[in-house]
Amino acid sequence: MKIALTSLFVDDQRAALAFYTDVLGFTKGHDIPLGDDFWLTVRSPESPDSPELLLEPASHPAVKPYRDALMEDGIPLAQFAVEDLTSEYARLTGRGVVFTQPPTDIGTALMAVFDDTCGNLIQLIEMKQA
């Protein structure tokens, strides 16, 4: 068994696609219309074998209270790995991305948390070389 797909709820799927591709640098996978919504995925060009990320509409009534509570406590809903967190932090803040947590040394890794503008916090992690 393999993990093929994981998902995030997003406020607006088109805005989310723009952020996840133009700003973060992922590429579009599937984009299948489902009524007013889409079955929309992105993937990382750096790791074609990684699971796809489904950008799911946030219209279900359970989503808002769930995400609001996690956002309040600063809890990220996904983690992306980067080679160089310091330069990613500079690149993303230069593009207006807001971090709730700047790069922080946690011993084995550097981590930071940003707002994806779609209702989620995302953690970036750079593992230190052993």
Partner: peptide
């Protein structure tokens, strides 16, 4: 100026 999540991470990892 830290979120609950950041405080939790630092207490656990550091």
């Amino acid at each position: 100026g830290q979120t609950l999540f950041e405080i939790c991470s630092i207490l656990a990892m550091r």
